[in-house]
């Protein structure tokens, strides 16, 4: 084996491969074949036809995209300036990073509870708004689209921030210094040096936060309107499988969900493949 360029250490991969096959490949393939066996008869593709024929099901794709794309974009765009300023070493960096990253540990339910308390009709935010006379009646910020979007930003931002911070620290700071000595001001250093080198990392970060946001489920229930404007695709899949006990339809919806994510990720990675992706000169 070793002579043929196969390292015996690769055998250490076996448990991992078994694990992936058992817990990922098998359920996916099982679900895939299940989705082709519709409960109510019809052809092999009957479940898929039903999904796309029924606006109540079909529209969940759009509803979910409408949440996940803005959430991922906002998370990536908001992380760039903050991570950019936090590249260097300064006092209190650890504390600030901790504060920015803590929401990961909160979990969706606690975040939802917090959102309801602060942004709900009798929450502090609305009390203040009404107190200073900006509005007469509470602004609706939970149990609708905005509640879910806020929740996705709160839980998704730390991931985006940490990823982008590590991509940024992988870019050699002397590149910007060199650009400065060549006459580029701060804005143009970012535009021509940092941003192009960071862009591939931004693409990956967008994909990961998009996938996280696209599979939103608990917050769509807790701070959204699960039968209305935040009836996301995972709710449709859940209801088919567990309320209507139509596992094949549930599986079909899960497959559609996966395809939509793959299409978006594929488009982003296609754009990424047009970018420079070599070394960025840093330690990363």
């Amino acid at each position: 084996m070793a002579e043929r360029g196969v390292d015996r250490v690769l055998w250490l991969l076996v448990p991992g491969v078994v694990f992936v096959v058992a817990l990922f490949a098998y359920p996916v393939l099982y679900g895939l074949q299940l989705s082709f066996q519709p409960e109510e008869g019809g052809g092999v593709l009957a479940n898929y036809e039903r999904f796309f024929a029924d606006p109540y099901l079909r529209d969940t794709i759009w509803i979910t995209l409408r949440l996940a794309v803005p959430a991922a974009l906002i998370n990536v765009l908001a992380s760039i300036p903050i991570a950019y300023r936090m590249r260097g070493r300064f006092r209190g960096k650890r504390l600030l990073t901790t504060i920015l990253v803590v929401p990961i540990t909160l979990g969706t339910v606690l975040t939802a509870e917090g959102l309801i308390n602060y942004l709900g009709p009798v929450g502090w935010f609305n009390k203040i708004l009404m107190g200073i006379g900006l509005t007469d009646e509470p602004v609706r910020l939970v149990h609708n689209y905005w509640g879910v979007l806020f929740s996705l930003i709160i839980t998704g931002f730390p991931f985006a921030f940490l990823l982008i911070l590590s991509y940024l620290s992988g870019i050699d700071p002397t590149l910007e210094q060199a650009a400065a000595t060549l006459g580029a001001d701060r804005r143009r250093r970012f535009r021509y040096i940092t941003l192009p080198l960071l862009a591939p990392g931004l693409a990956i970060t967008f994909c990961l936060t998009f996938v996280l946001a696209f599979s939103v489920f608990p917050s769509a229930y807790l701070v959204g309107l699960p039968q209305g404007e935040t009836r996301v695709i995972s709710i449709a899949a859940y209801e088919s499988a567990f309320r209507d006990t139509d596992y094949p339809l549930g599986s079909a919806i899960a497959m559609i969900m996966a395809v939509v994510m793959l299409v978006v990720v594929g488009l982003v990675l296609l754009w990424r493949s047009t970018l420079y992706r070599g070394a960025t000169g840093g330690k990363g």
Partner: peptide, 29 residues
């Protein structure tokens, strides 16, 4: 600021812009 001093600098690690061709590196300034 450095961009307004009009000095050229050669760095120890060269600090060439890795995403630009040699020609674009030289033409950047």
């Amino acid at each position: 600021p450095p961009e307004r001093r009009g000095f050229g600098m050669v760095f120890q690690n060269y600090a060439l812009f890795p995403h630009m061709s040699v020609h674009r590196n030289v033409a950047f300034g």
